[in-house]
Simulated assay, not measured.
Amino acid sequence: MGFAAQAQTAAVKPANAQTKVAGPQIQFEEMKYDFGSIKTGDVVEHTFKFKNVGTQPLVISNIGVSCGCTTPDWTKEPVMPGKSGTVTAKFNSAGKMGMQNKVLTIESNSAGGNAMVSLVGDVKDAAAAMNVAPASSDVSAPADAKEAKQKTKISDNKTKAKRKAS
Results as ranks from 00 to 15, higher is better:
Q56Y: 03
M116N: 07
Y33N: 15
C69P: 08
S155A: 14
S61W: 12
P24T: 00
H46G: 00
G68Y: 08
T70P: 14
E30Y: 01
P81S: 14
E30A: 07
G36E: 00
V103M: 11
A161H: 13
G85C: 10
K20I: 01
A10V: 11
G41K: 03
A126L: 02
V21W: 02
V65I: 14
A4G: 06
K90L: 14
A7V: 14
K76S: 01
P14E: 07
G95C: 10
A161Q: 15
N114E: 15
P81R: 09
S137R: 15
D144L: 14
D138W: 01
I26G: 00
I38F: 01
K151L: 12
T86Y: 04
D144F: 12
Y33F: 12
A127T: 14
M31R: 13
V87Y: 02
S66N: 01
S37M: 05
G112W: 09
E107I: 13
S66F: 03
E77A: 14
V12L: 07
T47R: 06
A5K: 09
G112V: 10
V44T: 06
N62I: 07
A89Y: 11
V44D: 10
G54C: 06
T19F: 10
T71M: 14
I154D: 05
K83I: 08
K13G: 10
I63F: 04
N109E: 05
N52H: 02
G113L: 01
S61P: 05
A22L: 03
A111R: 11
T88Q: 13
Q18H: 01
G82W: 01
S61E: 11
T88P: 13
F35Q: 00
N131F: 09
P134N: 11
M130P: 11
V117P: 05
V43M: 03
T88Y: 06
N52P: 05
K83A: 15
A165R: 12
V12R: 05
K158F: 10
V132L: 12
